[in-house]
Design a protein around this nucleic acid. Sequence first.
DNA 1: TACAGTTTAGACTCTCAGTACAGGCCCAGG
DNA 2: CCTGGGCCTGTACTGAGAGTCTAAACTGTA
Lengths: 185, 185
Amino acid sequence: MREKVLVAAELFAEFGLDATKMEDVAAATGVPKATLYYYFEGKEDILAFLFVHVLDQLGRAVGGALRTGGTAAERLRAVVCAHLGVIESFPAASRALQFDLGRAARSPMIAARTEAAFVEPVGALLVEGARDGSLRPVAHPRLVATAILGAVTTTGLNALTPAAKRPLERVADDLATFVLSGVAA
Amino acid sequence: MREKVLVAAELFAEFGLDATKMEDVAAATGVPKATLYYYFEGKEDILAFLFVHVLDQLGRAVGGALRTGGTAAERLRAVVCAHLGVIESFPAASRALQFDLGRAARSPMIAARTEAAFVEPVGALLVEGARDGSLRPVAHPRLVATAILGAVTTTGLNALTPAAKRPLERVADDLATFVLSGVAA
DNA sequence: TACAGTTTAGACTCTCAGTACAGGCCCAGG
DNA sequence: CCTGGGCCTGTACTGAGAGTCTAAACTGTA
């Protein structure tokens, strides 16, 4: 069921939640409407499920990047690349997340998972970087982590826009350098 | 009428477009439903009007910051502060913009105005900074400008969240330093 | 007064989320 | 082979709310 529903991400990404009818989801996934309501509380619940899925991947990717060796600065670069990698792996769900960002932000559960998956660990990494001398100390690590999150998602998703579709690898370098310089020692 | 409708921003900011009924807008603004439909094509049209209003302010603020004297780096700092200033002046409309970011991004008109108000001029400023030596040269100025846009909006709006309401001035310094260092020479 | 444009109340249509429910499918226990 | 109880699904329904329509009221102008 989980895998089937992932297809709905493309609808949500293209049209947004409101413009997507439950029947469309049923048609696209092959799961009948009544069954969708059997498994999910409603449309929002399906969206939330997709978001959680993406955020889980993001959390895993960030965790992996943090566990690579090297200085905090090197690992931060790895985090940025991993983040872009997640966006690339789940373009539809990522764009859906951006599309209904506001809705996601209102959900305490989603907000908490964003914190846990990104802001928390990256904030800690900034602190660590100040200690190991590879990054400059910042007054509010979580604030800067949020700024990094915003920079990466906005840029990454912009690059996915049908209008300006450009390979994320090319984006990665400029973006990572920007972020790195922003907190470099 | 324009001023009356600005009140609706608070509804959109708090509940989002879909969860806000046309009757709610009528009640909040004091303008009867039929009259709203006389002036606007529909709910989305009202939202678009609000967004254009914010983006106009943003464009003006950025323009003003660019016209201050000094190096490109100094003016970039001014841009960041001006941007935060706009968010602070129009918190409801700004949050509504974030809330329905996806919808806004789908509208070519809104996307074009975002480009014109921010990405275009800031990209040009980055190029100028590379010439005057106050900023380091970047391969894709518009991409970096987009990253800056993302960093500032995400951080600024996060700071407005009821949960973590913290004065934007405090945010400004850390954020501006982050952005500045990110492109400093 | 007459006329034109603006504003409004109220009743209407139509789409769609979500519900209700009855039947169908499948499988374990007898 | 039956049978009972889960899980799944088709179909019909309810209700909310967007947007439309129309006729009347109001406003300013000549």
